[in-house]
Design a protein around this nucleic acid. Structure first.
Lengths: 166, 166
DNA sequence: ATAGAATGTTAGTAATAACTAATAAAGTTA
DNA sequence: TAACTTTATTAGTTATTACTAACATTCTAT
């Protein structure tokens, strides 16, 4: 019975896979130096990782050729990339963290968030976005005020009072 | 000029430090086997890590004695523990992730979240908790409904309609 | 077509962080 | 206190993942 399908990928292998996936989406073909440049690691490091990924059935790669994702590799890469995007979105658009910082954090945390937690987060983002104004619901604005000042906004307090009346 | 103060700690060293901090808070004294049991690693692994932490000025440890945190170590441990608690709280109480899963995720992600992002998250949690009912604001209940059904609750839709009228 | 540049691979090294097996010290109890 | 148990340390191994230096291949432009 083949077990390799189940084996968990290391963070660094996930990083390589994600990069290959993203590069493949944007430019079609992927070469060692592209991955090297994207992840800011040496080409030998990429080469070594390609070997591991190849053994795991995530990519196909012949010496001096392009890096090609297998179906399995594409799915895995896509999943990691989704975690990355969703975490970034949450940090940036909801918490108000500057984009570059949001990306940095997401880039590390994407490897550790479980599927269940990610789906909850995605649902939360959907919930916020399902409001008709693109600025999001009132409470999100209230939160941003709260963050800046440490106090609840007047609107926020009014909503609380109304709630208490009922 | 001493640089060692600035040097970033690895995830595993952070884990050891956090465990020592927590064990110290709960039972006062900390021994190698306690850390070993808590992190489920061998005692030699703990021993090795203690050496690294000792060199970094985070703990004091003499052979066969207790592990003692330095002031620097205590501060660092406390900070990681705070990240852990806040992430757990967010996942569990706001997103509704079951506690054990929330803990697991937090335990890995705690090492990667930046201070800035953490402070935003803490502020967000404070914001939610600053509502007078401990179930949190209406929108949080709406979110939980949304998560279960994929639809906005009636209350939620009403709030949106009211907003649009204005 | 070939020289030189760009890209890729191989080989060997280093740091981190886990492990087991063997040994040593400390503690407990008959 | 001597035997035994528990706890701790040392030594040596392994896997991962990065690196540099040296070499090989492929591409490009004259």
């Amino acid at each position: 019975m083949k077990q390799k399908t189940v084996k968990k990928l290391s963070s660094s292998i996930e990083d390589y896979l994600e990069s290959i996936y993203v590069l493949n989406q944007s430019s079609g073909t992927v070469r060692v130096k592209d991955v090297s440049a994207k992840l800011e690691v040496s080409m030998p490091s990429v080469h070594q990782a390609l070997h591991v990924m190849s053994d795991a059935g995530l990519i196909n790669h012949e010496n001096y050729g392009y890096v090609e994702l297998t179906e399995k590799g594409r799915k895995a890469g896509k999943k990691i990339w989704r975690s990355h995007r969703m975490l970034t979105k949450f940090f940036n658009e909801i918490l108000g963290v500057p984009l570059s910082r949001a990306e940095e954090d997401a880039c590390k945390m994407e490897h550790d968030i479980s599927s269940k937690t990610l789906e909850r987060l995605v649902s939360f983002i959907d919930f916020v976005e399902s409001y008709p104004h693109k600025e999001g619901p009132d409470w999100l604005k209230s939160f941003k005020y709260f963050y800046k000042t440490g106090k609840r906004s007047k609107e926020c307090d009014e909503r609380i009072k109304e709630k208490l009346k009922k």
